[in-house]
């Protein structure tokens, strides 16, 4: 049930193969750059999980991204012991998950749903940005670490396992392996028993509730998983740049994952992965060119993508590929889709 022969899976395998040989093909800069893109993929996957699978529209995955980034910074800088950095990573992810759970509990058990979840999370991330922005003073010390206000915290230690510091290629492979694990987990989760209930909630909350599922519980659970994934992304971002600022909570950081997942194809994790990497690469290339038209081109591409490919750019390509090469599958898929929308 897991490895079906269709365009998406073939592409996924090819992408990961490409990622694994990539460092052999290019220079050190490009490897670190891709490591950064891959770090941001976790953020897209977190939204793909909660929005694409479970239908929870969060506009504030940046909340968990930022909180865990700050946690890792404060924890590792305070401990001063570099071998404790893996513990910082694990605790950061757990804390992100727990905070997401609490927030989810607060929302889903209170009957907040749909676009209102998006609005609450958006407000929350803006609260955190406003708050963190003014923490430059020395009253904002946690242990020996100043929260740093708008300028943020820098010189955050890299990950160290034993006496081995993860930088360059080793950091890249570390991120890639975790990405692969998360990816396989998400693919498995989609068709697991819980995953099917999750999709049922997306399609119809009322009906799923009547079937005896504890909808708020499952929603909170998935939201917590999403929070943990976003946290992973935040910590990887910190590890990549050794730096974090309140702009991690800002409107732009909150919007980009939504844009990526919607434009790539939100019900499809491979699409989210591929589109995130392509988007970051494309927008970076535009920015490096120094062209004043960079942002205009970016905006137009997004508009055109949504208008002409409403189910997501990459997801639609997968679908087209299925129709070309795997007629049988796509027909049954279509039928399934038709049934869903009815």
């Amino acid at each position: 049930m897991l490895v079906k022969l269709n365009t998406e899976n073939i592409v996924a395998v090819l992408i990961f193969l490409f990622f694994f040989v990539y460092p052999v093909l290019v220079d050190a800069y490009s490897v670190m750059n891709l490591a950064y893109f891959l770090s941001m993929v976790f953020l897209s996957l977190s939204l793909s999980l909660i929005w694409g699978y479970c239908g929870i529209f969060s506009f504030g995955q940046a909340v968990f991204f930022g909180i865990s980034g700050y946690f890792y910074a404060v924890f590792t800088l305070n401990s001063g012991i570099t071998t404790l950095t893996p513990l910082g990573l694990i605790l950061g992810v757990l804390i992100g998950g727990v905070i997401a759970w609490i927030l989810g509990y607060f929302m889903f058990y209170g009957g907040v749903n749909d676009v209102f979840v998006g609005l609450i999370t958006l407000c929350l991330t803006l609260v955190l940005e406003t708050f963190m922005g003014q923490t430059a003073g020395d009253q904002w010390m946690i242990g020996q670490v100043n929260l740093g206000g708008f300028n943020g915290i820098n010189s955050i230690p890299s990950l160290q396992i034993g006496s081995f510091i993860l930088t360059g290629n080793s950091f890249y492979y570390f991120v890639l392996l975790i990405l692969l694990a998360v990816f396989i987990f998400l693919k498995w989760f989609e068709f697991s028993k819980l995953g099917i209930a999750v999709v049922a909630i997306r399609e119809n909350r009322e009906r799923t509730k009547l079937l005896g599922y504890n909808v708020p519980f499952i929603q909170s659970l998935v939201f917590a998983m999403g929070g943990a994934l976003a946290s992973l992304s935040g910590i990887f971002y910190v590890l990549w740049g050794n730096y974090i600022t309140p702009s991690a909570f800002g409107l732009a950081s909150a919007t980009i994952p939504v844009v990526l997942v919607a434009a790539g194809g939100r019900k499809n994790v491979t699409a989210a992965l591929l589109f995130t990497v392509l988007y970051y690469w494309f927008s970076q290339t535009l920015s490096a060119s120094g062209s004043e038209y960079a942002l205009i081109i970016l905006g137009l591409v997004l508009i055109v993508a949504i208008l002409f490919v409403p189910n997501g750019l990459i997801a639609s390509l997968f679908h087209a590929g299925d129709q070309l090469f795997f007629r049988e599958h796509s027909k049954s898929l279509l039928r399934k889709k038709g049934a869903k929308t009815l």
Partner: peptide
């Protein structure tokens, strides 16, 4: 060599690394 950093701190980091390494 002058990329546009777009008033974005992340962009500063990306572009600083690019200028140095590439």
């Amino acid at each position: 060599v002058a990329p546009d950093t777009q008033s974005d701190n992340k962009r500063y980091q990306e572009m600083a690394k690019r200028l140095i390494l590439q």
